[in-house]
Design a protein around this nucleic acid. Structure first.
Lengths: 329, 329
DNA sequence: TGCCGTTCCGCAAACGATTTCAGGCGCATC
DNA sequence: GATGCGCCTGAAATCGTTTGCGGAACGGCA
């Protein structure tokens, strides 16, 4: 069916070994022969069988990518970054979506691990213990979560919160609500930490609401408690929750930002498209994906590398239409 | 490193051939032996090397999935459906994002084709000719596009438009605008076709605007021409454009649906979250993905199958807050 | 006892590449 | 003219499976 190395060898009048060398280690073969082989290969449209190669070299040139939920607008950006960088490095990418199920996640890691050279785990939901176990037997990098010294790319959540709080206090806000994401979420814990530090430093009051599901409905549900808390501004765990807040405020006739300011986190595409547009802490999602692949590729080259195996990516506050000075200022 | 079939064979005191048979064709081996092999395999944590198996069987148990842009909210749903169905059938999925570039698309098809048993092409952007060429040498199904008799899953675009127009005319609208997507898009052509038929049948006027890019900004740009056209309702090529329309209408102080009704297409998650919520023609995106994999798997079983190789999935009008009777009705 | 048919299992040859090893050849050196 | 060395090439082993073929054991039947 497909054209093999033997076909090329026959066409070029050399042995399969020579074809292999001409194509992968040209320095080992006479220029003239090399040229002849290349031409035959091109004519026949030969390309090596990756499975066969992988069998002997032990490298598959495949990466595995596991995400909790592609429907969450945070992930497509990350996935695109991973895709792009992997393709540049001639790696193909297996994708698996766990539907937010930690059990499915461990299952998928197990099955994927055997078909790839390394894994990228986006915001893994499984336990630290499991994560450490897998990391011990497979090259792996985490995105958006940090566990001990395991390789990971994260965002500067703490500084992001500092930026958000600084923006609000500069506008004159003194009392801020936070709509929390899942307690089990690493990034939620980090954001809470940053938020507490920043509000304390600024001498501003903080009311924590939730946790709620990190979805639109979670924001809708949190809106009334936020209003009842008597704050002039609210920061949401992520943009999707913030959109839910905006929607409910709108439905109740509460003007944003005139009566209350709203800040999200992530900067998903929709954040700029709603009205009022959403002020939010922007995360470089595509860079995160690329950085993750870079790190993984480095790890594959020398598994016990001395270089950095963790990186924190900076955040940037996107000031838009949902924040303003508090009403009685 | 990893445990191979030989290790299991040694542990169970049989030959590798017997191990293989015990695990894949138990009927060929004595029950007692079979049991012993299974136990050894389980103890050692053996799982067959897929690359080695693929080498000899010719099956990789991998599928390739190519999408134009994961950032487009239409695709994640489809991808999730594909994922889920593929996993059920024990197939792993390679994902590639072409960034809307037809050249990248053909390139990716070429490279992926050799590592998979079959390909799923989401809304392929390449030419019919190329598509036919690839289909001739690789099992492949298209999603959201139809080319001749090639295997494809599509949506009932024409009927979807009929539903939308019926809804509007029933409300009393007599003059409708359509904001067109890319002229090269198969689904845009289908939707236009359905729209013309439906408006003609209902005796309603139709104003075609665009084409615009199928993005938020495209909708923003189309909003003013729509208003200038003197219509009481507008149907957009897709939801993202419709959201752009809503945004611009809002900015210009045009009330929706009081002054103008808006209908989208796709029913992306955001459609239900904006205010007013968007009336739209809903497409079963996840089913589409699943149906695509089902079709592909069938094709792999018997390549010259007599059964249907094309399916059209029904659409459903989601009536929400962006449509109402025209102002002077 | 001899023959045949089952049933079960091992040997060995694939699959398509990579890589080690060894050999042929030409050339310079002593 | 023998020796040694480089350069280039081919033969063969290897990776981990699957599978066709044949042999051994065993029971049934004449």
């Amino acid at each position: 069916m497909a054209v093999t190395i033997k076909d090329v060898a026959r066409a070029a009048g050399v042995s399969p070994s020579t074809v292999c060398r001409a194509l992968s280690t040209p320095s080992l073969v006479r220029d003239e022969t090399c040229e002849r082989v290349r031409r035959s290969a091109a004519e026949l449209g030969y390309s090596p069988n990756r499975a066969a190669r992988g069998l002997i070299t032990g490298r598959t040139a495949n990466l595995g990518l596991i995400v909790p939920d592609l429907g969450n607008p945070f992930f497509p950006g990350v996935v695109k970054g991973i895709q792009a960088r992997a393709r540049e490095a001639d790696y193909a990418v297996f994708l698996a979506d766990t539907d937010e199920d930690p059990a499915a996640e461990t299952q998928l890691v197990r099955t994927l691990a055997k078909q790839v050279d390394g894994l990228v785990l986006c915001s893994p939901r499984m336990s630290e213990q499991e994560l450490r176990g897998f990391a011990a037997e497979t090259p792996l990098v985490m995105l958006n979560r940090r566990v001990g010294r395991l390789p990971a790319i994260t965002f500067a959540n703490v500084d992001g919160m500092r930026q958000a709080v600084t923006h609000l206090t500069a506008l004159g806000h003194r009392r801020i609500a936070y709509v929390a994401g899942p307690r089990t979420s690493w990034s939620n814990r980090e954001r809470v930490r940053g938020l507490r530090a920043a509000t304390a430093a600024a001498g501003a009051g903080l009311v924590e609401i939730g946790p709620v599901l990190p979805q639109f409905d979670g924001g809708v549900a949190a809106a009334d408690p936020v209003l009842a808390a008597g704050v002039t501004a609210v920061i949401a765990y992520n943009d999707v929750i913030a959109l839910g807040l905006l929607s409910r405020f709108n439905a109740r006739g509460i003007a944003v930002p005139a009566e209350i300011s709203v800040i999200g986190f992530d900067d998903i595409p929709m954040a700029a498209m709603v009205h009022p547009s959403l002020t939010t802490v922007g995360l470089p999602m595509e860079s995160c994906g690329r950085a993750g692949v870079d790190l993984l590729l480095g790890l594959l080259q020398d598994p016990d590398r001395f270089g950095a195996t963790r990186r924190e990516l900076g955040t940037q506050l996107m000031v838009r239409g949902s924040t303003a000075a508090p009403p009685n200022a």
